[in-house]
Design a protein around this nucleic acid. Sequence first.
DNA 1: TTTCAACACGAAAACGTTTTCGGTAGGTCG
DNA 2: CGACCTACCGAAAACGTTTTCGTGTTGAAA
Lengths: 341, 341
Amino acid sequence: MRRKVTLKQIAKELDVSISTVSKSLRDSPEISEDTRQKVQAFAKLYNYKPNLIALSLKNKKTKTIGIIIPEIVHHFFATVISGIEHVANEHGYNVIVTLSDESFDKEVINMEMLANGTIDGFIMSLSKETQHKKDFHHITEVMNQGMPVVMFDRVTNDVLCDKVIIDDNLAAYEAVQTLIDKGFRKIALITTVDYVSVGKLRTDGYVKALKTNSIEVNPNLILKIEDIDLCDLQIEELLDNNEVDAVFAVNELFAVTAIKAAKKLGRNVPEEISVIGFTDGIISKYSSPSITTVSQNGIKMGGKAAKMLIERLESEEEEEEHYKTEVIETHLVIRESTPTL
Amino acid sequence: MRRKVTLKQIAKELDVSISTVSKSLRDSPEISEDTRQKVQAFAKLYNYKPNLIALSLKNKKTKTIGIIIPEIVHHFFATVISGIEHVANEHGYNVIVTLSDESFDKEVINMEMLANGTIDGFIMSLSKETQHKKDFHHITEVMNQGMPVVMFDRVTNDVLCDKVIIDDNLAAYEAVQTLIDKGFRKIALITTVDYVSVGKLRTDGYVKALKTNSIEVNPNLILKIEDIDLCDLQIEELLDNNEVDAVFAVNELFAVTAIKAAKKLGRNVPEEISVIGFTDGIISKYSSPSITTVSQNGIKMGGKAAKMLIERLESEEEEEEHYKTEVIETHLVIRESTPTL
DNA sequence: TTTCAACACGAAAACGTTTTCGGTAGGTCG
DNA sequence: CGACCTACCGAAAACGTTTTCGTGTTGAAA
């Protein structure tokens, strides 16, 4: 077993000083051509690679980005990570991923765990519980220590930092408007409880679209789902007890579940009920009928977040206090769950 | 902005030595009750947390696990990461995730990037290109430096290390046997090219099941897909040109695509064609008809891999050369794409 | 021959910890 | 009163780098 070789060992072996070795490897002009070549040859032979931990300690930079997300077995979050990882990699950064499991405590613990030197900055999306409690002290704390934070998707106005979002309100508005344009009036909404920021915004967009078109907002057609495990029954009940000609769902799961419920009730999609979902993931693409949906480009979102974070990390001047919020554009992907004309 | 406080600063402030501060915080009996309390109070006030990078350098342990996978926007790999992350977290480890994008070069680069002190060990699944090239020098190299590696799912016999797999051969065999038991004889196989290890094993299982039941293996019914983007056409062609009463697909995507193709050709699933897939992911669950599939528990697989790696990391004795291969059990999840009786 | 620059290299500090080894003060015992 | 023990604390090394500064040698110019 050939352990990793250090500068000290090379120095000893070649009977020169550590500084000479270091300088030789960095092509310093202080070192004579002779010794430089000698050292470099030796280093190559023994496959010397500088120890990154030592460098991190010295430079006070780890070239590592910490990610905190609610879950990873989730198409959208996976695409975001993918986007972050690729941009990070291009800039020589690694990403360390932690999961909050939608729990406030885990979010705090993970944050503190990473904040002690392991990473240079955070990219995160808030857990449901955090959004519910509205407790962001852990975030402001690390920011106070000079560690930049970029939030994406599930953000909050209570923390000043860089953010990457989509215009959830507008996207929902446009999706519902599309349904209205096709002549539907009895449009149901399947959404989350209000403390989930994006759920609330999409709900607002739905309401706005109806109001703009002078359609009465019927509370019976709005279903706010708390517990995902029960969503199939609730959705079925919604469709069974109400005349509904279209459904707008704030995520893929609700959309596909609505389709399943409609089928069960003997209502064809899209002939009798149209469905539009949110987030262009695997389900929308491969369910049958495939689902018309608001595409939310996670790759782009993650990439943008990584870019913003890295720019802030590498701008020497600590130009605080003019944080940006980037809005990623969305568009409607038309598929089989809505009528073509 | 309150920067992070160090031992040195506390020492200076309290006019004691660094060692005294360190010992006080670790409740060393060498320190008097008085100073210990004083130091601890001060540390708490200023929210002192030891710098993990410094500790890593000193201890030569980073408490971080490196993961290298082909892609992350993939249900199975996401579940594996989830499994790893949770077990790792329980043991005080972080995970750093890198993606090879199925590229040999990226796999090598990522590995070398992490091998220089950033992590204590690897958990990885081979990229397609690596499996094709059969070049594993990057892996043996880090292992030679004393860094443990655990492989999962896409493994190779050419490297001796801990592994976590499912019995792909047996699982495929049992799935096909199930189809045979239901009376099907014209069973098509949709698989990957042979250099993908799991694809090959599943193909072998298919063949074995047919042979065991004295059913002739018809090459026309075996489709090996190289380019995923073209799989829909190829599958459609397969079903169109052959009498097929059942399909066994080695992943979800092929399974759902087969169902779509069957529908397009006017053949009902499961009435006219049965389909069994592999990997119990989102697609299988939510497509309609939902897909009968071989469940491959990624959470368990990741958890097991993490456990094996951590055990090896924390066993003082470097008990090399008796590597284990753990086999995670699979089972068939019966859904709508196969007839009930 | 003296002086001074250029050249080549080494010593040491710094990053933040932990830990070993001494050392000093006070007290106890003979 | 001297020897020794105990309680308490500090100096320093170590982990592996980079970098600043100092130093010695050489050659050429004066």
